[in-house]
Design a protein around this nucleic acid. Sequence first.
DNA 1: CGGCGACTTGGACAGTGTCCAAAGCTGGAG
DNA 2: CTCCAGCTTTGGACACTGTCCAAGTCGCCG
Lengths: 146, 146
Amino acid sequence: MSAPLVDRLRDRGYRLTAQRRVVAEVLAGDNTHLSADEVHTRAAAVLPEISRATVYSTLQQFSALGEVRELALGGAAKLYDPNVEPRHHHLVCDRCDAVYDVARGVDAPDLPAQEHHGMVLDAAEIIYHGVCAACADTAVIADPEE
Amino acid sequence: MSAPLVDRLRDRGYRLTAQRRVVAEVLAGDNTHLSADEVHTRAAAVLPEISRATVYSTLQQFSALGEVRELALGGAAKLYDPNVEPRHHHLVCDRCDAVYDVARGVDAPDLPAQEHHGMVLDAAEIIYHGVCAACADTAVIADPEE
DNA sequence: CGGCGACTTGGACAGTGTCCAAAGCTGGAG
DNA sequence: CTCCAGCTTTGGACACTGTCCAAGTCGCCG
Ligand SMILES: [Mn+2]
Ligand SMILES: [Mn+2]
Ligand SMILES: [Zn+2]
Ligand SMILES: [Zn+2]
């Protein structure tokens, strides 16, 4: 579709550094839902000297630019989703933190204005919690009674 | 309504320690959405020698018992919500992490079975993201142009 | 009251994320 | 093409959240 992320960065006055290119490349690999650390590991495979600090700040920038979506699902680390369009929700396994996308169409109801508590709302995010197939299986193996 | 938390603990075979009583007391104070650290601070005001480890494990137990709900909203720390019934969703300020409750009635749509990705679903959680009144104000002060 | 074993403690430890001074590099000016 | 202002990166220190464990404590039952 439109110009790649690197072009949009240049157009917005950002310098095109090797680090930004590599992070963009990792994200563009369509590998959904990576943590900052995973992004760093993959980026370092291409550009070994890239630092953690740079990956963190780059992800924040891309997120602020709307190029990537930051997800705070239950896990310890935030996840970065390069799939910003179309907007979608997620299923999360509460045992192993596996994440799946919810296909478009499902959405949260709008909140009536009197429920806003004075806030300016921006977006609603639904997280469907559950147990994934793999985790359900291991549970059966570990507890085969009944 | 029903018996207080302390009674339910005894009934389930848990020992009634001073630490559990104090944590229960802090939560019962209807102070919604406390982090583990805040719970520790408040508990320590009553029982100064209570340890962080105990507060963390106690909160996990209460959460597993359904006495409290663990919330992973955007902030760094998980929050504990003593208001488990009725189930409700939340509004979160992405600037200052303020949290508000959504009144009952609002709920996420059920996911069609073919969207489950093999998971056994347990609960859906909606997070309405936005900017609270206080944060919106400070932004205006900091950026009075236009 | 005594003892078993559940519970707590305190500190070490791991993971995530932020910060900053110094060094490096990009991109535009000349 | 060169130069350089200042945007970026680096690496390490640091803060915070949460987990773990061995040792000591204490609730509860007999
Ligand atoms: Mn996604
Ligand atoms: Mn609540
Ligand atoms: Zn799982
Ligand atoms: Zn706010």
